[in-house]
Amino acid sequence: MTDPDVQQSLQRIRPTLLRFAMLQLRNEAAAEDVVQETLLAALEGKSAFSGRSQFKTWAVSILRNKIVDYLRRTSREGILPLLDEQGDEDFDALFDGSGHWQEVPGDWGDPAVVLEQRGLYDVLELCMKALPENLARVFTMREILGFETDEICKELKMSSSNCWVVLYRARMRLRECLQLRWFDAR
């Protein structure tokens, strides 16, 4: 790609990058910063992009690293809000007294088909935004940025069991939201 091509492509995907960063950082200034850093790094490293992968995929992978760096920095500064001690009563209500499902979980269909449906990712974004910040931070580190659980616990100074509980709660909320907004709505 020539320089103008790269610049144009970057401008085109900038909104996507910004949305991606906002979702995980929930802070507009921070999101702008990491996206800016990503655009610079992409321009500098454009020779590394040989057209093997999609341009957007490549830029998102740079952005991921920038977000990881940012999270490492800020978690050390202890900006993360403490986890609330709110229980799991909401989810326990999904089961009866003997621990059976009150309602059988929905059939979400063939993953190969579902994952190709375009609108899914918009609903996913909406549902991720609806997560409380303390859950979302841990959950996106695990599922979008692909941190190992030990690593998250260490970075955020949480116990392992606390980490698992937070990830569990995030999954249960996301599941509920996807069921309602995507699977029931179709």
Binding site: T16, R19, F20, V60, H100, W101, V104, P105, G106, D107, W108, P111, V114, L115, R118, L120, Y121, L124, E125, E143, I144, G146, R171, L174, R175, L178
Partner: peptide
């Protein structure tokens, strides 16, 4: 029922790995 739940969890993970789509 639990198999369905497990499939839901796997699908969520796969979708999030692909995000933003």
């Amino acid at each position: 029922a639990c198999r369905r739940f497990e499939r839901q969890m796997k699908l969520m993970r796969q979708a999030l790995r692909r995000f933003p789509g």
